[in-house]
Design a binder for these strands. Sequence first.
DNA 1: CGATGGGTCATACTTTAGTATGATTTTACG
DNA 2: CGTAAAATCATACTAAAGTATGACCCATCG
Lengths: 157, 157
Amino acid sequence: MIRRFLSKNKAVLGYGLSLAVLLFILKWLELRFVIYDHAMELYVGAIALMFTLLGIWLARKLTRPQKETIIIEKTVYPDTSLGFVPNETEIAGLGISKRELEVLELMARGFSNEEIANRLFVSLNTIKTHSSRLFEKLDVSRRTQAVEKAKRLRLIP
Amino acid sequence: MIRRFLSKNKAVLGYGLSLAVLLFILKWLELRFVIYDHAMELYVGAIALMFTLLGIWLARKLTRPQKETIIIEKTVYPDTSLGFVPNETEIAGLGISKRELEVLELMARGFSNEEIANRLFVSLNTIKTHSSRLFEKLDVSRRTQAVEKAKRLRLIP
DNA sequence: CGATGGGTCATACTTTAGTATGATTTTACG
DNA sequence: CGTAAAATCATACTAAAGTATGACCCATCG
């Protein structure tokens, strides 16, 4: 606890210490030389200088550095393969299954139903049923519409 | 020239002025009260305080603010719908005509050939020929592929 | 002026897409 | 263990999409 206090109030402690040292020097000067009236200006000047310097030092120590936030806008071209996060909420809300989503993705990539069937190792009819259900759920009637809507809803990249 | 000097050295001049004022005050105090030995500490203290404050003020005026730059990189995704610039080079290179591009855009938006025909006030057959030529030029065989490729080549948004 | 390219349209045809319906098999869950 | 959702497949059909070919109009350009 004490260490924390020390570290937190380092500047203040430093100021106190400096003050003490300066007062000591003053006392010493007072004893060393009899202060005549004509020496007064010099004495005051010295004090002024010292404390001005102290003030400068204090100011530099105490003022916390001004933070300047520079926001660099970095344009990132939608690298569909890297930075895509599917809208799970929408997918779930529409009740689209995993398999249907797979079909949808391949559709969006321009594959025909037959090509999709070959890729997924199922029959053409299966793909047809999948796509039909997909169109129902997406409330569309053609694959191009489905792709357009799916991209708009961020179901697919 | 004088005004420029004044404005450039405002802080220095301020310091000089303050010093003069303070010295005047000191002189006044010296005249006003006879400075006894026991009043010495108080006097010195006042000077110390004043000059410390002056030093702080000076430091704040003269030293340029300590900046701590925080750089935040903010990724900005370009709004494809607003700031879209078609790749004219590619369009010209592939020899795609204005009308064909129109058809392509409507295709991408999910319209059927018949819908496109109605929109452009031409017959279904015309749209079919347009799309056939389009597919040839894009080297694809289906509309979904055409849309995918066109978007990839930035022919359409 | 004639060739060229863009746009239009038609007919005839093939292929792909999409719908309707029914059935079987997995798989997940209470 | 039984049920519901998901996934599979089939048949039969309709509706789009796409191809091939030929024709016509019109502006532009050498």
